[in-house]
Structures are given as structure tokens and as C-alpha cells.
Amino acid sequence: MLEKLQLVLQESWESAAIELTRFLPHLLGAAVLIVVGAGLGWLAGRITRWLLWRARADLGAERLGIMGPARRLGIESPSAFIARVVRWGITLAAFVPALYSLDARLAADLVRRFLLYLPHLVVAVGLLWAGFLVSRFVGRSVLIAAVNTGFGSARLLAALARWGIVLVVLAVALEHLGIGRATVLTAFAILFGGITLALAIAAGFGSQDVVRQWWAGRLQLPEKRDEEPFRHW
């Protein structure tokens, strides 16, 4: 009995040692790949940062007016941000051959899924970024126009315009990523359908007199606006 136990333990230990001996080189290889990748990533990041500094990318971004939205996202320096993206992109890319080194089949499957999903991710990020910029521009346009036409709740109107666009873009981005597709679409349809219905009812009730007057005096001209009696130019 003891001899059998000893044999079993010895065989288990030998199997484990053989597996470990077979696996260790793969593990070491993966570690080396990751370290080299991290080193290359660091170097590429430094080079990118230097090139963007020479090209005065931060000043260009300021001039293009994208620093405002960028700062809100916690990006103080576009060149530093891009350099960091390059660095971590190369570092993460080094994990791919490292995974292959450990298990080719699993790695291949993961890489295939990631590469198929990547375009959706890129498009979604681009949509969100563009949507954010557009919403900011439209919000400011509405705010200034509302102030200049004497609208009392200019900020509210501007916020509605801005967040309306953000919601639309967010729904489109989530739908593109396939996250809660049905839920997002349904919620979006309910929300905007509700807003449209409310606006239609409000417009209908609010313009009863105007419509009545229009029908009653179809040929009457609109009233003159109250303006200063002198010429500004």
C-alpha cells in the first residue's frame, strides 16, 4: 500500500514536472514578449511626444477649439494623451504574441473576436467624440440666439438642445456596440416620442388664438416688431 502511494505521488510529481518544464519556456517567452513590448511602447511614446511637441500640436488643438471638450474629459495636453495612447497600444499589442506563446488556439480566438469588434469600437468612439463637439456647438448657438431674441430661459433651451443631441448620439453608439440594443432603442423611442407628443400638444394649445386669427383674417399682414426708432447703421 505504501509503495503504491509512493508510486502515485512520484508519477504525479513527474507529470507535473514534465508539464511545468514544457510550460515554463512558453511562460518565459510570453514574459519576455511583454517586457520587450512595454519597452518598445515606452520608446514609441517618447518619440511620439517629442514629434508632436516639435509640431506644436497643443497650440494647434487650442486654435481648433478642441481643448475645451478635451479638458472636460481630463485631457490637459493632446500630445501627452496621444503619446500615452501610442505607448499603451504597443504594450497591449505585445500581449497578442504572448498569448500565442501560451495557447495558440485560445489566442487566435481572442484576437479574431477583438479584431472583429474593433471597427465597431472605433466608430462608436468617433461618433461619441463628434457628437460631443456638435452638441457643444449647437448648444452654444442656441444659447446665443435665444439671448439675442429675448428668450428668458436661454440656458434651459440650450441645455435641451445639447443633451438632446448627446442622447441621440449615445443611443446610436450603444446600438453600434451592440450593448443593450433592444433596451436602448426602446427607451430612445419612448423618450423622443414622448417629447414630440408633449411639444405637439403644447404647440397646439398655445397657438389656438393665432390659428383662429389666421383663419379669421387670412389677408392681414403680421404686426411690426417693436424696434428702436433710430438706425443702428
Partner: peptide, 21 residues
């Protein structure tokens, strides 16, 4: 005759809503 009140209201509306700009 000039309606300065309307101009003042426009100015005040600007001060309260366009400060960020």
C-alpha cells in the same frame, strides 16, 4: 423716443446667460 429698458433687458439677459462665453 428710445426704449432703453428693452436694451437693458437684453444686456442683463446676456450677462446672466453668456458669462461662460
Amino acid at each position: 423716443a428710445v426704449n432703453t429698458q428693452r436694451m437693458l433687458d437684453h444686456f442683463r439677459n446676456g450677462v446672466s446667460n453668456l458669462r461662460d462665453v
